[in-house]
């Protein structure tokens, strides 16, 4: 079957019109069609969170979403965060606090952190751990990630 569907989607602020197969997963659309390989494919079973992106402002696991489901939506990936002026405060904080070792989970962690801090700019340690429950890291033991989120929260509050 080679049927295709036309979708219109804004990815990191750029409007795109694409012919895609309905079975194309969002994560494959982002990585293979658009070349946005910052979004990682981890478990492929919506458990690990490495593929987390924002769709219409809400963090989702892009391995469990069809590209056609995002027709008409705004998608933001890890590539949307840094600007010519430098890294995003969450990225800075993960760097400063050693919130990563191998870095595989980091794009998803950062996008999940972004959602968490949008909803709760001053999370407690427990709220951070609860908010990042959908993201698995096999290197850090999470301590440094929690520290990074705390630092990012402080810096983002100071910056507004």
């Amino acid at each position: 079957m080679s049927n295709t569907t036309t979708i219109q989607v804004r990815v990191n602020g750029v409007s795109r019109t694409e012919e895609v197969q309905p079975r194309l997963l969002l994560v494959h659309y982002l990585r293979d069609v658009l070349g946005l390989t910052g979004t990682h494919i981890g478990c492929e079973t919506s458990l690990c969170g490495a593929c987390t992106v924002m769709v219409d402002g809400a963090a989702v696991k892009s391995c469990t979403l069809l590209a056609v489901q995002t027709d008409g939506c705004e998608v933001e990936t890890i590539e949307s965060l840094a600007t010519d002026d430098g890294l995003h405060p969450i990225q800075e904080a993960f760097w400063d606090c050693h919130g990563l070792q191998c870095g595989f989970c980091t794009p998803g962690m950062i996008m999940a952190t972004r959602q968490l801090l949008q909803e709760n700019p001053s999370p407690s340690e427990e709220e951070i751990r609860h908010g990042l429950e959908g993201n698995i890291c096999r290197c850090t033991g999470y301590k440094h990630i929690v520290d990074a989120v705390k630092q990012a929260a402080e810096q983002m509050k100071a910056g507004t």
């Binding site: 919506s46 969170g49 987390t52 809400a58 989702v60 696991k61 999940a112 959908g134």
Partner: peptide, 9 residues
Amino acid sequence: IGDPQVRNR
């Protein structure tokens, strides 16, 4: 249920 990303969708 699940985690924040799963609950969003």
